[in-house]
Design a protein around this nucleic acid. Sequence first.
RNA 1: GCCACUGUAGCUCAGCGGCAGAGCGGCUGAUUCGUAAUCAGCAGGUCGGGGGUUCAAAUCCCUCCAGUGGCUCCA
Length: 637
Amino acid sequence: MPDPVRLTFPDGRSLEVPAGTTVADCLVRWDPARAAAALAGSWDGRALDLASPVPGSGHLAPLSFDDRAGREILQHSSAHLVAKALTEAIPGALPTHGPPTEEGFFYDFEVRPLTPEDLDQVRSGMRRSVAAREPFRRKEVSRAEAERLFAGNPHKLRYIREAPADEAISYYETGAFIDLCRGPHVPDTGWLQGVHLLGFSAITPEAGSGAPPLQRIRGVGFPTEAGLREYLKLRSEAEARDHRTLGQKLELIAFFDEAPGFPALLPKGITVVRELERFVREHLKDAGYAEIRTPLMWAQSVYETSGHWSHYRENMFLTEADDRMWGWKPMNCPGSMLIFKSRARSYRELPLRYAEFAPLHRYEPSGTLHGLTRVREFVQDDAHLFVTEAQIEPEIKKLLAWIARAFSTFRLQWSYELSTRPAEFLGEREAWDRAEATLERILRETGIEYRVSPGEGAFYGPKIDIHVRDSLGRPWQLGTIQLDYQIPARFELKYQGPDGTLHTPIVIHRVILGSFERFLGVLLEHTGGRLPPWLAPVQLRILPVTEQQAEAARGLEEELLADGVRVERTGTEESLSKRVRSAEIERIPYVVVIGEKEVAQNGTSVRIRGTKESLALSRAELRQRLRDKIGSRAFEP
RNA sequence: GCCACUGUAGCUCAGCGGCAGAGCGGCUGAUUCGUAAUCAGCAGGUCGGGGGUUCAAAUCCCUCCAGUGGCUCCA
């Protein structure tokens, strides 16, 4: 009889159990309630099946769906379930891998192109399996045995060959289906009540790999059907916030088949964008920027100098004139560089900050276009800062402060990502290392939490990106701060230093809101179309109850127009209820009803968006409230 | 760009080989109304474009365009 093992648990209690006791039994002896919610166990940080014996003394914790690790186990088990059902439905289909993702899971197969009917079959196969509560049985085998078992599947053979030599090869058996897998898994398929397939798509194989295209089935799993229902409800609510639908319903934007990816801004849309621009320009003025406007097109030679010709040409709209090639600018940097170069510069001018809000054109692949968030023509709140080495840090710190202020104004949650040298890059590795180290140090010193994305930097420098999520949880990059030692040198930019010699400035490329188009899209989803009063295309609508109050309504309208409020007034052909409803649907922040009573008291009855009751305010009080809310760029009316 | 799916009135959608429909919106008229839909009438369509099959095509096939979901890429 081997020695008993001693286990400690999350609440600090410890327990002695005979060696070989299963994880499940240990957890039950510790806390039956918490054991019941466990999908698997974590022993000294290693995830284990509930049916596995504890390997020895150590710390044991349950993993439930509420833990990230537990959630991933359930997703991964769901992926196995999909693979089982699909290989049963389509004999000869080769499973490759099926990892958990942030949202759920996917499983990739080498198989003929799938059809919606295949998916139905997979669904019913999964239902049968769940009802049968088939156990996930773990088996450990030798490499040779594993290669024999998976001889028909080159993908699995590759994984076996690639597995670290010291690692045991394990596979899981679910009914007649076996899958090479490290595990762990939920105990049986009965735990996968809430599995839902999201769709299927083809996977583009890595260019030049010669690999066959794969078919991916995506899904998401929940421990209960109720959990799934909750998720589906949230998802359909999120779909109602889709900026493409809202943008159309609120008459902000339009798209044309004849110009895919080129969003048109309707009168209301341009109103919002102008307000956003005003917000940004006010800051630029305070922060010492100068605004410039440079050509939308440049001849090829400019892009050869900047590096875009060799690194970005596939993404540019090109045209020919005067016997040479021209490119619509995909970024503002070449113009800023040439303006800097247009005369001799002194160190006294630095930091020199040039802002430019010009339309940019990028030839994005047709399949990647998406509403306002991925387009081919857009305007950024762009600027280029020409700085000395010593000015990098204070300038970037100022930018980080502006980011925090700007995004807080919209109550957006944002996150930072540091992207480092890509495979294709300009310049010397040493310069890159230095630039990356600088950005990293600034982030650390500022106490900012950030993720690192290796190899995701721009071709000319590393960057700090700002990401926010849309209503469906899709992350979008908005702002970016890019440190560039390359392009200024390529343009041979010089300034005269205090020592009398010429130096090359460093350039910080930066956008904060990203593009106004994408920002509007994200903002619409974030607010469900209920834009803050300062951004609302129509800020206030006056509804006279009957024709008797038309005159008073006109008077109020004039007063508010004089205050600069974007105000509208309705006729009385439609019922008051109908007009209130329309205003509500249009997400107008303030709806003012003028009836007999209001006229008698020279007052207003104000319905504030998001509330059902109306507020009796004098005209002066109403004007004051509008001044406060709009002037301070308050988020709520 | 790749794979799959979708495209019918301004919008949301039904119709899926045999006479192009509904609701909302629009217009006209009546109603003058107190905080989310007053009533009636009318107009509005080469069924995404082109080609084919068929006695007959919105419907079946081919192709192009656009959109959607993924992949790749990206502000």
